[in-house]
């Protein structure tokens, strides 16, 4: 699939920076959040018919930095510079904040639900990653505080099938975590290769690959290897190791703030500080252990300022959401040629 990325619609409403956008798992609704301390839910319709569905304005005292839908689509979590995480649901018929999680010392920068929905991960400038267990009746219990990073933690994401957590940091590294035999959360791997802040990361649909985006203007692709792999990659006494197999450089001219890996089309999209959105595709016949990627689409003035987040629609093929410092949320479609 190569082609051109075209704007379907431009959603206005936020004032100031829009930091993050997140698709509902059914693909018909998009949530966005930002500097104006609000969360906006947009109904997604084909063409330019998308509209504001709902405005959630009273959950946070400062910037809402990130939002994430649970896989069941029932709950929305928001992370804020006010050091709290809010959990929203519409069980009563309208979206309401039904829990507030406190514990981080300062700005919470990212939030993510595990595939099973039984766990939530958060991270902060306080250098820690927290794993929360989700109980019924809006009860959340801290299951672990992970202090593996030496600087603030920018992003957390879960593996798409297993309870493996990954975090990206200002200390230039990525850490992986799992529960050990004693049910204790521990750091099981460190991915070091970037030379500046790792802003974001995403798993491919299998979870065997990871893409990371950095302030050093590169993307890196990491491949998972199991013990006794035919390639002879040393795994030592770990369950697995992720090794950097490809560095994509020479395309981005400013920090890459976000990256998303489509689980329907395998395309990678990036949000960059040079106002561009770029789409990358693995080349045909590319070697698994030494893959090559090409840039199949580049929209140079996708927004008029820094782009902070991009996310592929999980259901509708080739549809991408982006948001920017320019106050806009945009929806794009990859058109095949």
């Amino acid at each position: 699939m190569t082609g051109k990325l075209k704007t379907i619609c431009s959603l206005k409403g936020h004032s100031g920076i829009v930091w993050n956008a997140s698709w509902h798992p059914k693909g018909q609704m998009l949530a966005s959040c930002g500097e104006d301390k609000t969360i906006r839910l947009w109904n997604y319709k084909d063409g330019d018919k998308s509209t504001l569905k709902c405005l959630l304005a009273d959950g946070h005292q400062r910037t809402v930095r990130a939002i994430a839908w649970s896989y069941c689509g029932q709950s929305l979590a928001s992370a804020s510079f006010d050091a709290t995480i809010a959990i929203w649901d519409n069980k009563s018929g309208q979206f309401e904040c039904n829990a507030t999680l406190e514990g981080h010392e300062n700005e919470v920068k990212s939030v993510a639900w595990s595939r099973s929905g039984s766990m939530l991960a958060t991270c902060s400038r306080d250098k820690s990653v927290w794993v929360w267990e989700v109980w019924e009746d809006n009860e959340y219990e801290c299951a672990a505080v992970l202090n593996a990073h030496s600087q603030d933690v920018k992003k957390v994401v879960w593996h798409p099938h297993e309870d493996i957590l990954a975090s990206a940091s200002y200390d230039n590294s990525v850490k992986l975590y799992m529960e050990d035999a004693d049910k204790e959360w521990t750091c099981v791997g460190t991915l070091s290769s970037h030379t500046s802040t790792v802003w974001s990361l995403a798993f491919d649909k299998t979870g065997d690959r990871l893409v990371t985006s950095s302030d050093d203007r590169t993307l890196k692709i990491w491949q998972k290897y199991l013990p006794g792999n035919p390639e002879g990659i040393s795994v030592k006494d770990a369950n697995f190791v992720y090794k950097c197999v490809c560095t994509i450089s020479g395309f981005h001219t400013r920090p890459i703030y976000d990256v998303t890996w489509c689980h329907l089309t395998d395309l990678i999209a990036t949000a960059c500080g040079d106002n561009s959105i770029r789409i990358f595709k693995e080349e045909d016949l590319s070697d698994r252990n030494q893959p090559s990627f090409s840039c199949v689409s580049h929209v140079s003035e996708a927004h008029s300022q820094d782009i902070n987040s991009v996310q592929w629609n999980p259901v509708v093929k080739g549809v991408l959401a982006s948001c920017s410092d320019d106050g806009l949320v945009k929806i794009w479609k990859m058109e095949s040629t």
């Binding site: 500097e35 400062r62 930095r65 510079f81 920068k109 603030d152």
Partner: peptide, 8 residues
């Protein structure tokens, strides 16, 4: 030069 830290 970290925009997130500056904003916070």
């Amino acid at each position: 030069n970290d925009k997130e830290r500056v904003a916070a």
